[in-house]
Write a protein that binds this DNA or RNA. Structure first.
Length: 1004
RNA sequence: GGGUGAUUAGCUCAGUGGUAGAGCGCUUCGUUCACAUCGAAGAUGUCAGCGGUUCAAAUCCGUUAUCACCCA
C-alpha cells in the first residue's frame, strides 16, 4: 500500500458517505454503550423549497460536531432531520411552475387538485437540501426524516407521518383551553399573496419616500391664533389660521381618517382641541368632518405635531383609535386596491359624519366604504397620486414661496409650490413577496401568546434552558416580555387547514354583527365535530336535525340550515378555509418529530432534546415559539441548551445577498477544496457571539491543513509505522515519545473543554496548533533520526498512536479525511465514525520530558535564528561548542543529540571555548558557540546580540519595577509574585550570557 | 429615538486582570526522499480616543467617536 501525495476529497467523500449510509452509522442509538446517557439534537428544519446556503453549512457543521463527538463517546445519540412545509414559499414555487407550464391556475383546478400538485412537487424536488447536507457530511439519522405536513389528508404514500395529527391535536387543545381565538384585528397583510402574515415575516426597510403637508380646514370656517415659540419661549411665528397642518407619507389613507390627534401638552393646538376639521379630499359636497383629539402618541417636535389617525391602515393609529373610540374605516381590498364594495360614497360619508358628530354609535362599520367612486378599484399608489393632485389643485397643500429669475427678462418670479419633503421612510415589506405590506383589518386566528409566555420566560430565567451566548437572553426576554398575539391563520391552501367548522348560531339576533351569526365547532375530525354540533343543535323543539358538511361558503345571513321536511332539518357545516402558519407546526418540531402525541420510546428517550443550534435571526421565529409551545403542550422545555451562532458574511463583512452578488455557495467550496476544509474553516471562525467572515482563501488554507495531516500519515506509512503498530496506548521510554504523548493528552483536554463550552473556534484552532505545530513541525522531525536506533519500535508505536489519536479527535470537525486515514492505517473492526473517544488526560504528561523537549526546541530555534541572521548557508553544517552547561542542559543534550544535530544542522556537540569567528547562542543553563569561519562579520554579530540584549533588558526592567513596588508584594497573589521572580531570574541569566558573548566579541 | 454588539499586526480574527497571539499576506533563504497545498528565518501593534478603579487594564467601570445589527 502506498498513499497518494494528496487526499482526493472528491472521490473519497462520495465513497465514505456511501459507506456510512450502508452501515447505518448515523441511526439513533448507533455506537451507544449500554446504559449510556442520551444526547439528542433536532435540526432546525430547512424550508422544503430551500437549497443549501452557507448559513446552513455553518449551522449543520456545528451540530454535526456535537453529534459526532457524543456518538464517539458512546452516548445514545439522535440527530433528527426533517423539513418544514413553508406555506407561502412552496405555494409560490408550485404556482410559478404551473404558470411556466401554461397549466390552469390554482383557483381553476381547485384546492384538492392543487394540493396534489404540491405533494407531487414535494416528492420530486423537495429533497434537494437533504442531499446537500449529506455532501457536507452531516450525520443525521436519515431514516427518521420528518416533514411538518406528513400525515395530512391527501398526503401520498411515504408521507404518512404523525405531524398533522400533532398539529391538529395542539390546535384543538389550545382552542378549548381558550389559548386560541378568532378575532378582527389589524394584521400585516401581504397584497401579493393575499394572506395575513405575522410581524416576524415583515422586513422593515428604509426606502426613499415623501412627506406631504396638507391643510385640514376647521369646520365652519373657524379660525384660531397659531403661535410658535423657540426653546426660550420667544414667539417666532404668530398667525391666524383656519386649518390644522398635517404631515403624511400615505395621502391615500386620508380617506379613512377618523380623527386628527395632537399631544395633550402641545400649546399650539390647545385652542382647537375638541373641534372638528375637514378632510380635504373627496367630492366637495360630502366632505367629512373629523374631531381633533389629544393622545400621547403624536410627537410635538415631528412635522407639524398633528397626526391624522387612520385606524384601519396603520398600527400606531390603530392603537390611538382603540384608546379614543375612533372608528376604523377600511379602504382597501385583499390586493391592496381601493375598495369597490359596500355602500356608496355618499351614504358612507353621511354615516361617518353622524358617527363623528356623536349622533350615531360606530358599531360595525364594515359596509362603510369611504373611497369616492372615482377612486374605487384603483391601486393604492395610483390613488395616492390622484389624492395629492386633487388637494394641490384645491390649494390645500401647504406651500412655500419659490423664487426664480426669468433669464430673458431678468424679472423676478414668485410662485407658491406644494411642500413635499423627499426623505427616507421605513416601510414594511413581505419577506417572501417583496411587496409593501398593508396593515389590514381582517378576521384571523390568534394564539393568545400573553397567556402562555410566562413559562417560557421562567425556564430561561431559572436556567432550565440556557441560551448562549448570554447576550441573546436579553433579546429573548425583551421579545417575550412585550409579546403581541400571534397571527396564525394564513389565507393559503398549502398547510394544515384550521380544524374549525362553522354552523348557524341558534342564539342570534338581528342586531348581532355578522361574525357572531356563526357558531364555531373545533375538533380534530369530522366525527368529533358532528358530535359537538348535534349536541348543540339538539333542541327540545321537536325538530330532528342532522349534520352535513360543505366546502361552499354560504351566505352569512341565511346559511347553514335546510328544511328537508316538516320536523326535519339539515345543518350545514363548512370548514374554515384558512391554514395555519408554518411556524405553528414548526413550533412543535421537538415533540412532533419524536412521535407525539403517541407515547413513543423515542419521545421518552430523547425528549427534552439537548442542544438547539441556530442562527440569531430565528430566536423569535422559532426558539421562543418552541419554548412556549412545548411548555404549553407537554409542560417541559424542548431543549436544555440553545447555541446561537453568527451570520456568515463575506470577506469584507458584508451580508451575503443575491442582489450584491457576494453569495458564497458552500457546494462550490466543497467541489473546489472538499467538505472537510469548509467545515474546519467554519468551525474555526465560530467564535461565540461573532459573525464569521468567510473567503475562499481561508478554506484553501485549511485544505492545506488536510494535506498536511495526510502527508504526516503518508510519511509514517512509508516508514512502516502502521505495519509494526500494535493496538493500544504505548508506554515509551524515550523523552521525545513521552513528550508527544503528553502533548496529545493536552490537546485532548483542551478539545473536550472547548467543545463542552461550545467554543468551536478554540476546538478547531487547538487541534490545528497541535497537529501542525507540534505533531508535524516537531515530532515527525524528531522521529526521523529515531527510526534506526534502539528506540525505533517504540517510536513507530508512538507515532501510530499519536496519529490515530489526532484523527480521532479531528473526526467530528473533519469526518471524511479522518475516516479515510483510519481505514488506510490499520485493519479496523469498525469505522472511525464509531471510534472510541479518548479519555486520557494529565497522567500522560511527563513534566521532565516536557522540560527537556522544550529546551531542545529552544536550542534548535536559537541556532537556526543565529545562522539565518548571520547569513550562514542553510546547507552548511557547523560545529556546536559547549562553552558552559549545567547538568540539566548536558542531560538534555546527551539524550537528544541526534535530534539537535539534524534539525539545527550541527555536528555533535563538544566542549570548548568560545573564540574568534564564532557566533553565540544561549539556552537556559548553557552557552554555545558556533564557529562560522574567519569571515564572520563582527559588526553584524554585535548588532544581533545587542538587539537581543536590549529586548531582554527591557523586559527585565519591567519585571524588576513591578517587584520593587511594595504594593505589588503586598497585594498580588503569591503565585504571581513567584512566577514574576522566576521569569526575572531567567531574563537576568539570559542577559548575562549575551553580555558575556558581547564582551568576548569585543576582546577578540 | 431605544437596545445590543464591535473597534487588537497590511487583511480576517482569537485573547474574562499578570505586560499581546494565530491564520492569510509581506521580506529573505531553501530541490537532504511526508508535504512547494512545503520548510527555515524575519518585519510589522499608542490593543479607537479620554478619564476612572487596581500593585497591575486589551481585559473591569464611565465617557466620546466611528461602524454594524435589532426594535420603534
Amino acid at each position: 500500500m502506498s498513499m497518494d501525495k494528496t487526499f482526493d476529497a472528491a472521490s473519497a467523500e462520495a465513497r465514505i458517505a456511501a459507506a456510512w449510509e450502508a452501515a447505518d452509522a448515523f441511526a439513533a442509538g448507533a455506537n451507544a454503550k449500554p446504559g449510556a446517557p442520551a444526547f439528542s439534537v433536532v435540526i432546525p428544519p430547512p424550508n422544503v423549497t430551500g437549497s443549501l446556503h452557507i448559513g446552513h453549512a455553518l449551522n449543520n457543521t456545528l451540530q454535526d460536531i456535537l453529534v459526532r463527538w457524543h456518538r464517539m463517546q458512546g452516548h445514545n445519540t439522535l440527530w433528527q432531520p426533517g423539513q418544514d412545509h413553508a406555506g407561502i414559499a412552496t405555494q409560490m414555487v408550485v404556482e410559478r411552475r404551473m404558470a411556466e407550464r401554461r397549466e390552469p391556475g390554482r383557483r381553476e383546478i381547485g384546492r384538492e387538485a392543487f394540493l396534489q400538485k404540491v405533494w407531487a412537487w414535494k416528492q420530486e424536488s423537495g429533497g434537494t437540501i437533504m442531499g446537500q447536507l449529506k455532501r457536507l457530511g452531516a450525520s443525521l439519522d436519515w431514516s427518521r426524516n420528518a416533514f411538518t405536513m406528513s400525515g395530512a389528508p391527501g398526503a401520498p404514500v411515504g408521507e404518512d407521518g404523525n405531524f398533522h395529527d400533532a398539529v391538529i391535536r395542539v390546535f384543538v387543545d389550545m382552542y378549548h383551553k381558550g389559548l386560541i381565538y378568532r378575532g378582527k384585528r389589524l394584521v400585516n397583510w401581504d397584497p401579493h399573496f393575499e394572506t395575513a402574515i405575522s410581524d416576524l415575516e415583515v422586513e422593515n426597510r428604509e426606502v426613499p419616500g415623501h412627506m406631504w403637508h396638507f391643510k385640514y380646514p376647521l369646520a365652519g370656517g373657524e379660525t384660531y391664533e397659531y403661535v410658535e415659540r423657540d426653546a426660550d419661549g420667544n414667539v417666532t411665528l404668530r398667525e391666524t389660521r383656519d386649518y390644522i397642518s398635517i404631515a403624511t407619507t400615505r395621502p391615500e389613507t386620508m380617506l379613512g381618517d377618523g380623527a386628527v390627534a395632537v399631544h395633550p401638552d402641545d400649546a399650539r393646538y390647545a385652542p382647537i382641541v375638541g373641534k372638528l376639521c375637514e378632510i380635504p379630499v373627496g367630492p366637495k359636497e360630502h366632505r367629512r368632518l373629523i374631531p381633533i383629539i389629544t393622545d400621547e402618541y403624536p410627537d410635538p417636535a415631528f412635522g407639524s405635531g398633528a397626526v391624522k389617525i387612520t385606524g384601519a391602515h396603520d398600527f400606531n393609529d390603530y392603537a390611538v383609535a382603540q384608546r379614543n373610540g375612533i372608528p376604523l374605516y377600511a379602504l382597501m381590498d385583499t390586493k391592496g386596491a381601493m375598495r369597490s364594495d359596500g355602500l356608496s360614497y355618499e351614504e358612507s360619508a353621511t354615516l361617518a359624519g353622524q358617527i363623528a358628530r356623536g349622533e350615531r354609535e360606530a358599531g360595525d362599520v364594515s359596509q362603510i366604504n369611504l373611497v369616492p367612486e372615482d377612486l374605487r378599484g384603483l391601486d393604492r399608489y395610483e390613488a395616492r397620486e390622484r389624492v395629492v393632485a386633487d388637494i394641490t389643485a384645491e390649494r390645500l397643500a401647504v406651500t412655500y414661496l419659490h423664487k426664480s429669475i426669468d433669464k430673458e427678462t431678468g424679472a423676478e418670479h414668485l410662485e407658491l409650490r406644494p411642500l413635499v419633503d423627499a426623505k427616507p421612510i421605513m416601510q414594511p415589506f413581505g419577506d417572501r413577496s417583496g411587496v409593501v405590506i398593508e396593515p389590514m383589518l381582517t378576521d384571523q386566528w390568534f394564539v393568545d401568546t400573553p397567556k402562555i409566555v410566562q413559562p417560557a420566560i421562567d425556564a430561561v430565567r431559572d436556567g432550565r434552558t440556557r441560551i448562549m451566548p448570554e447576550q441573546h437572553e436579553k433579546v429573548y426576554f425583551h421579545w417575550l416580555e412585550n409579546i403581541e398575539p400571534w397571527t396564525i391563520s394564513r389565507q393559503l391552501w398549502w398547510g394544515h387547514q384550521i380544524p374549525v367548522w362553522y354552523g348557524p348560531n341558534f342564539e342570534f339576533s338581528d342586531e348581532m354583527p355578522d361574525e357572531d351569526l356563526v357558531k364555531e365547532f373545533c375538533a380534530a375530525n369530522r366525527t368529533d365535530v358532528e358530535e359537538l354540533a348535534l349536541n348543540y343543535y339538539s333542541r327540545s323543539d321537536g325538530i330532528e336535525r342532522r349534520v352535513e358538511f360543505s366546502d361552499e361558503l354560504p351566505n352569512r345571513r341565511a346559511f347553514g340550515l335546510r328544511n328537508d321536511a316538516p320536523g326535519k332539518q339539515t345543518i350545514i357545516l363548512y370548514r374554515d378555509p384558512d391554514v395555519l402558519d408554518t411556524w405553528f407546526s414548526s413550533g412543535l418540531w421537538p415533540i412532533g418529530t419524536l412521535g407525539w402525541p403517541e407515547d413513543t420510546p423515542e419521545l421518552r428517550r430523547y425528549f427534552p432534546t439537548d442542544t438547539l443550534v441556530t442562527g440569531f435571526d430565528i430566536i423569535f421565529f422559532w426558539v421562543a415559539r418552541m419554548m412556549m409551545m412545548q411548555l404549553a403542550v407537554v409542560d417541559e422545555v424542548p431543549f436544555r441548551n440553545v447555541y446561537v451562532h453568527g451570520l456568515v458574511r463575506d470577506e469584507k463583512g458584508a451580508k451575503m445577498s443575491k442582489s450584491k452578488g457576494n453569495v458564497i455557495d458552500p457546494l462550490d467550496l466543497i467541489d473546489q477544496f472538499g467538505a472537510d476544509p469548509l467545515r474546519f474553516t467554519l468551525t474555526s471562525m465560530a467564535a461565540m457571539g461573532r459573525d464569521p467572515k468567510l473567503g475562499p482563501k481561508h478554506v484553501e488554507a485549511n485544505r492545506n491543513f488536510v494535506t498536511k495531516i495526510w502527508n504526516a500519515t503518508r510519511f509514517a506509512e512509508m516508514n512502516g509505522v502502521f505495519a509494526a503498530a500494535s493496538a493500544g496506548q504505548p508506554q515509551p521510554a524515550h523523552t521525545v515519545n513521552r513528550w508527544i504523548m503528553g502533548e496529545t493528552a493536552r490537546a485532548r483536554l483542551a478539545l473536550d473543554e472547548a467543545l463542552a463550552a461550545y467554543r468551536f473556534n478554540d476546538a478547531a484552532q487547538g487541534m490545528y496548533a497541535f497537529v501542525w505545530g507540534k505533531l508535524c513541525d516537531w515530532y515527525v522531525e524528531f522521529a526521523k533520526p529515531l527510526f534506526d536506533g534502539e528506540h525505533a519500535d517504540e517510536t513507530r508505536a508512538t507515532m501510530a498512536w499519536v496519529i490515530e489519536q489526532a484523527i480521532t479527535m479531528l473526526h467530528p470537525i473533519m469526518p471524511f479525511v479522518t475516516e479515510e486515514i483510519w481505514a488506510l492505517t490499520g485493519n479496523r473492526a469498525k469505522m472511525l465514525v464509531h471510534g472510541d473517544w479518548p479519555a486520557y488526560g494529565a497522567e500522560l504528561i511527563d513534566e521532565a520530558a516536557d522540560r527537556q523537549m522544550n529546551w531542545v526546541i529552544g536550542l534548535i530555534e536559537g541556532v537556526r535564528s543565529a545562522r539565518a541572521q548571520m547569513g550562514v548557508p542553510a546547507a552548511a553544517k557547523l560545529d556546536l561548542i559547549v562553552a558552559q552547561a549545567d547538568d540539566a542542559a548536558r542531560a538534555a543534550l546527551a539524550a537528544n543529540g541526534p535530534l539537535v544535530e539534524r534539525l539545527a544542522r550541527v555536528n555533535p556537540a563538544r566542549d570548548g571555548e568560545a573564540g574568534r569567528g564564532m557566533i553565540a547562542v544561549a539556552a537556559p543553563g548553557a552557552s554555545f558557540a558556533l564557529p562560522i569561519g574567519d569571515v564572520i562579520d563582527a559588526a553584524a554579530e554585535t548588532a544581533r546580540l545587542e538587539k537581543a540584549l536590549a529586548k531582554t533588558e527591557k523586559d527585565a526592567a519591567g519585571l524588576r519595577g513591578r517587584l520593587s513596588n511594595p504594593k505589588f508584594a503586598q497585594n498580588a497573589d503569591p503565585e504571581v509574585i513567584e512566577e514574576t521572580r522566576a521569569k526575572l531570574a531567567e531574563l537576568d541569566e539570559d542577559a548575562a550570557r549575551t553580555k558575556g558573548a558581547l564582551e568576548q566579541l569585543r576582546s577578540l
